[in-house]
Simulated scan of single mutants.
Amino acid sequence: MPSKEDKSTKRLIVEGEQDKRVIPYLIEANGIPWKKGNEPVYIQPRGGNDFSNYWISARLKEAGLTHLGLILDADDDSSTSWQRMRDACLPSIRDIPQEIPETGLIHITNTGIKFGIWIMPDNRLKGMLETFLAYMISDENQPLWKYAQEVVEESKNRGAEFISFHHDKACIYTWLAWQNPPGRQLHNAIEERILHPQHPNAQVFVNWFRNLYDL
């Protein structure tokens, strides 16, 4: 029996399982139905950000593919992440733009595939999925969010062992630990509106997703 991936013409590749869990809740909360077994887009975790030119070429040649999106983290530098991704795409997509738009890349390949790239958090700043999710903290929660960031900074002086690269993860999980109920997973926080998926700061990404996949 064909797998869901085999049957899906719209596919999204993300870095990890966390992205795979979070994105459906975010998109569904913005009015796009996401029913198990009838998902509008098939999401596959890559297990890292190793998007080589050979791998991208193979994905673009898959039978039945009409839409392909890639989401990766900016990490320490969004420009470096974009250049690495652009270099990997160039052998297959010779006319890929020099710069990624602030609203995310949507590009029609010469074979007619609708191809998109989004670099977390916003195609400009450094960061990751958790950086983007912090954009969905409500205005009334900003004082507590600021305090959570201060506590995380102070924790390093008291021996906290998280690496600097995971600073944004530490901040949002600290903030979530102080919610009701405390310590919800990221996708649950969206589902339960602890994070606000319709926050204006999230809409650029939502619109990119909607437009890329014609939803």
Results as ranks from 00 to 15, higher is better:
Met1Gly: 14
Met1Lys: 11
Pro2Tyr: 03
Pro2Thr: 05
Pro2Asp: 07
Asp6Ile: 07
Asp6Gln: 06
Thr9Ile: 12
Ile13Gly: 01
Val14Trp: 06
Gln18Cys: 07
Lys20Met: 10
Arg21Asp: 13
Arg21Tyr: 11
Arg21Asn: 14
Ile23Ala: 10
Pro24Asp: 13
Pro24Met: 13
Leu26Ile: 14
Ile27Trp: 14
Lys35Cys: 09
Lys36Gln: 10
Gly37Phe: 09
Asn38Ser: 10
Pro40Cys: 14
Pro40Leu: 14
Gln44Ile: 06
Arg46Glu: 11
Arg46Asn: 14
Asn49His: 06
Asn49Leu: 01
Asn49Phe: 06
Asn53Val: 01
Tyr54Asn: 12
Ile56Tyr: 15
Ser57Thr: 13
Arg59Asp: 10
Leu60Cys: 10
Glu62Thr: 04
Glu62Tyr: 03
Ala63Phe: 10
Gly64Cys: 07
Leu65His: 13
His67Arg: 05
Ile71Gln: 06
Asp76Lys: 06
Asp77Ile: 05
Ser79Thr: 13
Ser81Met: 09
Trp82Tyr: 07
Leu90Thr: 07
Leu90Ser: 08
Pro91Glu: 03
Ser92Met: 02
Ile93Thr: 02
Arg94Asn: 11
Arg94His: 13
Asp95Met: 00
Gln98Tyr: 14
Gln98Leu: 14
Glu99Tyr: 14
Glu99Ile: 11
Ile100His: 07
Ile100Phe: 11
Pro101Cys: 01
Glu102Met: 00
Gly104Pro: 15
Leu105Cys: 08
Ile106Val: 11
Ile106Lys: 09
His107Leu: 14
His107Thr: 08
His107Met: 11
Thr109Leu: 11
Thr109Lys: 07
Thr109Ser: 15
Thr109Tyr: 12
Gly112His: 03
Lys114Pro: 15
Phe115Arg: 04
Gly116Ser: 09
Ile119Cys: 03
Met120Ser: 08
Pro121His: 00
Pro121Tyr: 00
Lys126Asp: 01
Gly127Arg: 01
Met128Arg: 07
Met128Gly: 07
Leu129Asp: 03
Phe132Trp: 15
Ala134Ser: 13
Ala134Lys: 05
Ile137Trp: 08
Ile137Asp: 12
Ser138His: 05
Glu140His: 12
Glu140Pro: 10
Asn141Met: 14
Asn141Leu: 11
Gln142Thr: 10
Pro143Gln: 04
Leu144Phe: 08
Tyr147Lys: 06
Tyr147Met: 11
Gln149Trp: 04
Glu150Thr: 00
Val151Trp: 03
Val152Lys: 00
Glu154Val: 02
Lys156Cys: 00
Asn157Phe: 09
Asn157His: 12
Gly159Arg: 06
Glu161Ile: 12
Phe162Trp: 09
His166Ile: 00
His166Trp: 02
Lys169Asn: 00
Ala170Gln: 04
Ala170Trp: 02
Cys171Ser: 03
Cys171Gly: 02
Tyr173Lys: 02
Tyr173Ser: 01
Tyr173Gln: 02
Thr174Glu: 09
Trp175Pro: 04
Asn180Asp: 13
Pro182Cys: 04
Gly183Arg: 12
Gly183Phe: 14
Leu186Phe: 15
Leu186Cys: 11
Leu186Gln: 08
His187Lys: 09
Asn188Tyr: 12
Ile190Gly: 11
Glu191Trp: 09
Leu195Gly: 00
Leu195Trp: 04
His196Ala: 09
Pro197Thr: 09
His199Val: 12
Pro200Glu: 02
Asn201Thr: 00
Ala202Gln: 05
Gln203Val: 02
Gln203Tyr: 06
Val204Ser: 15
Val204Leu: 15
Phe205His: 04
Trp208Cys: 10
Phe209Ile: 05
Arg210Thr: 11
Arg210Tyr: 09
Asp214Cys: 11
